[in-house]
Write a protein that binds this DNA or RNA. Structure first.
Length: 431
RNA sequence: UCCGGAGUGGCUCAAUGGCAGAGCGGGUGGCUGUUAACCACUAGGUUGUAGGUUCGAAUCCUAUCUCCGGAGCCA
């Protein structure tokens, strides 16, 4: 048999006979010619089977091969400009590993529930395939970005002992003889890690028991969270901006084929360039009032507000300097005006919503204690965190980027459940 | 939890008070350049569930279950 290659390398073998191993994606039959659309997980290749080019038994496979049957197919690599891959295979021989039973997923429209029930098979389809390729590239890009900038990866635990921020959104689990909770964020642990490593990031799943049923929510999602000693809010925003630009450019550089499969309008991504617009919460309010929204000072922005603001810009928008009342206890008060905290949200264009939330952290133990008391948080659970303000406290900042929302924006997907291999939502725990 | 929408063949949908239908997928046959190929034939139904109104219910009413979209919350 001719040499076995991956389909993505087919262009390097023009005119040669090669063997591909993979699955039947589709078959188009005619009388004395048939076309086998083949995939091996690296590319989709059309294979042409001509009656006078193959043994009789191979030609007759047009009647036995079914969608998703596994095969080894050998043939001559030919240029085919009309093919997406640019090349096709003139078949010489086919060996069958397994004839698939009737495959449930047709190359036609299906409902969301059906496809999610069949997620273990749906992964093979072109759309999910391309999205997960891009997700993998973005994950790698996150690691590369921080590793190239003197950050140390310090992962945070999934099990946490207490109900730190609002217990209603925490998943509770049995931990031997007591209760534990699944982490919502690694931030507090990262604040400890930077005192050892100066700049760190953590990257892993987060769990939130929010009863949200929208296209922007999962109960299990991935977040990358950098934390930096000696960064103020402006340094924090500079880094967030550079990071988002880097991720988009990496996808454009290394995922052209996948973006093409998804029919993504890449001109919208190509125009993403620093500096991003930075507006304060007050300016955001003014824009919203001009657009007819009735929003009082102190109210947090909802999804419709975010979308309305992002409409005015073709870049991600950074909204900073938020009312203190609407934000978490650990955010630093604006020294110029106590009513505000030095937090920032980054809103993706095209209505994809908030992809980053970050802030300068409060380093003064007195202010932290006041806020813990005011919000009636269990002080004893934060003793270890308060230690960080007792032993060499420094100004510091950080942010968290939601992986699925970012991938959803870059891929232009309607719902972020398509941006994670095995989505977990309020109503879905399988497969 | 609240608001809105939808449940009909394996899948996607049509039928709005009067004979449950189409496309895809399956099966059979045809076709030498197809692009979610095409053409012909064919099998496949207790209309989510329970009750009610009616001569007659997929269709109207009540209850209930499931899913989808959105709000709040957030990445």
């Amino acid at each position: 048999m001719s040499p076995y290659i991956l389909a993505k390398h087919i262009s390097a073998h023009k005119g040669e006979e090669v063997t591909l191993k993979g699955w039947v994606y589709n078959i188009r039959k005619s009388g004395k010619i048939w076309f086998l659309i083949f995939r091996d997980g690296t590319e989709f290749i059309q294979c042409v089977v001509l009656k006078n080019e193959v043994p009789e038994a191979v030609f007759e496979m047009k009647g036995t091969l079914t969608q998703e049957s596994s095969i080894a197919v050998s043939g001559i690599v030919q240029e085919a400009p009309r093919q997406e891959a640019g090349y096709e295979l003139l078949v010489k021989n086919i060996e069958i590993y397994h004839i698939a039973e009737d495959y449930p997923i047709a190359l036609k429209d299906h409902g969301v529930e059906f496809l999610l029930d069949k997620r273990h098979l749906w992964l093979r389809s072109r759309g999910p395939y391309a999205i997960l390729k891009i997700r993998a590239e973005i994950e790698q890009a996150c690691r590369d970005f921080f590793n190239e900038r003197d950050f140390t990866l310090v992962d945070s635990p999934m099990f946490t002992p207490n109900a730190a921020e609002g217990s209603t959104t925490l998943f509770e689990t049995q931990y031997f003889e007591r209760k534990a909770y699944l982490t919502q964020s690694g931030q507090l642990y990262s604040e400890a890690a930077i005192m050892a490593h100066n700049r760190t990031y953590c990257f892993g799943p987060c769990f939130r028991a929010e009863k949200s049923k929208t296209r922007r929510h999962l109960t299990e999602f991935w977040m990358v969270e950098p934390e930096m000693a000696f960064f103020d809010i402006h340094d924090d925003m500079d880094l967030a901006e550079e990071f988002v630009e880097y991720l988009v450019h990496r996808a454009l550089k290394n995922c052209r084929r996948e973006l093409q499969i998804l029919e993504r309008d890449i001109s919208k991504l190509e125009s993403v360039k620093r500096p991003f617009p930075r507006i304060s919460y007050d300016e955001a309010l003014a824009i919203l009032h001009k657009k007819g929204f009735d929003l009082q000072f102190g109210e947090d922005l909802g999804a419709p507000h975010e979308t309305a603001i992002s409409e005015d810009f073709d870049q991600p928008v950074m909204i900073w300097r938020w009312p203190a009342a609407s934000k978490a206890f650990y955010m630093k008060r604006d020294p110029e005006d106590e009513r505000y905290v030095l937090g920032v949200d980054v809103i993706a264009p095209e209505g994809h919503g908030e992809i980053i939330g970050g802030s300068q952290r409060e380093e003064d133990i007195k202010v932290l204690l006041e806020r813990i008391e005011k919000e009636q948080l269990p002080k004893e659970d934060f003793e270890w965190f308060l230690d960080l303000r007792r032993y060499g406290s420094v100004p510091h900042s950080g942010f968290g980027l939601g992986l699925e929302r970012t991938v959803g924006w870059i891929c232009g997907t309607h719902h972020i459940r398509e941006c994670i291999p095995w989505p977990r939502t309020m109503v879905r725990l399988k497969p």
